[in-house]
Amino acid sequence: GPQRTKALGVYAGTASGGYCLGLVAGGLLTSIGWRWVFFAPVLLSALILLAAIPLLKDSGAPERPAGGFDLAGAFSITGAMLSLVYGVVRLEHPGNGWAGTIGAFAAGLALLAAFIVIERRSPNPLLRLGILRSGPLVRANLGALLFLGSFAGFQFLVTLYLQEVRGWSTLQTGLAMLVIGIDVILAPTLTPRLVNRYGTVPVLFGGMLLATAAYLLFLPVGLDWAYTAMLPTMLLLGLAFSLAYGPLTMAATDGIDEPEHGLAGGLLYTAIQFGTALGLSAVTAVNVAPLGDGVPPQAGLDALRTALIVPVIAGTLGAIIIAFGLRTRRALRTPEPMPAPVETST
């Protein structure tokens, strides 16, 4: 209901706040020394862990039935995702040989098939496969994979453009993308109202379309673009995240029994992380593969423009997938026509 929608909007806004802090903190830490970017999260995670112990209380939910952990399932699905991402990464260097690349993809698919077999036979599966019969959940997961994958790839390319092509500092780059964090305000205020009025799927679809439009606007990027030319893309992405991030969680749990909301949430964030890795690997492969050593600025920009097509394609596919939810929603809302009265004669 409305309270849950508002809570997820606040959650999305909080996540955006973390993104904004990360952009600025990452720029500052890199200017001090790039190793701090890897060491500071260790300290921060330790503080979060220490704070979580007294602050996060058990909700009193029933414990998982005895039977152990599905380690075989966990290892197989983790290995499948790693192998598939590694296969994409290998595409960056075609000279390494296609045998290894094909082998990585084959291993990933084989491990994925093994995971399905394991889950069907396991008495205590990591993933109850029957949950995948939910159309909204599958669409939300595929949409999340493509939405976050396209953004991860785009953000990486923009970072390369600003720092490698334009020579901006890490702090300047972080501040340039800070506008995307406007959903820290919009997600908990505007999004819940839109969802309560129009529904989850239309709002989510609007966010996906805005993200794709933002990537399209950045395609003609030039060597001497002013920041004002980049600003519309950043603003549209901020609005896209405010409309899509929270509603993705809402859509992923739509129609799922409450005891399995945790499983649905776990699937969603697995899709998000896997999509982020795939998106980053894909744009890197497209951007790096045609380049050699000593690349002139114009050649680097041309390769970057080509790689920018990847987020556009991923964003478009994500919007198309979510659009099927609009059709389903419309079909459920459309009443069947009443039969015409039959005339009788006396």
Rank of each mutant, 00 (worst) to 15 (best):
L8R: 07
I309T: 14
T270V: 08
S83L: 08
P337E: 05
Y215C: 06
A40S: 03
L129K: 12
Y86N: 08
P123D: 05
T200H: 13
Y245A: 13
T253F: 00
L23H: 01
E260A: 15
G149T: 12
A264Y: 02
A244R: 11
P202R: 06
T334D: 14
L291D: 05
R139V: 00
A12C: 13
L186K: 12
M250L: 02
E260H: 15
A51P: 04
P94D: 02
A46S: 08
W36R: 02
P192Q: 10
I322C: 13
G87K: 10
A107R: 11
P94Y: 04
F105S: 03
S83Q: 10
G300W: 10
N196L: 15
T316R: 14
E258V: 10
Y269Q: 11
P2G: 03
E164L: 11
Q155K: 12
H93E: 12
Y198N: 04
P335W: 05
G95C: 05
A264T: 11
A66H: 07
N124I: 11
G207T: 01
V312F: 06
A252Y: 09
V42A: 07
F241Y: 09
A104H: 04
F69L: 12
I320Q: 13
E258P: 14
A66T: 08
L209D: 09
V184L: 14
A240T: 07
I118Q: 09
E260F: 12
I77L: 07
L278T: 09
P65C: 02
W34F: 03
P54K: 03
D257W: 14
Q3F: 15
W36Y: 06
P220R: 01
L55H: 15
V288Q: 07
G167W: 04
L278P: 05
G73V: 01
Q273V: 05
R193Q: 10
L239S: 10
T170K: 15
I77Y: 00
L178M: 15
L237N: 01
L308C: 04
W34N: 06
P290L: 02
M234F: 11
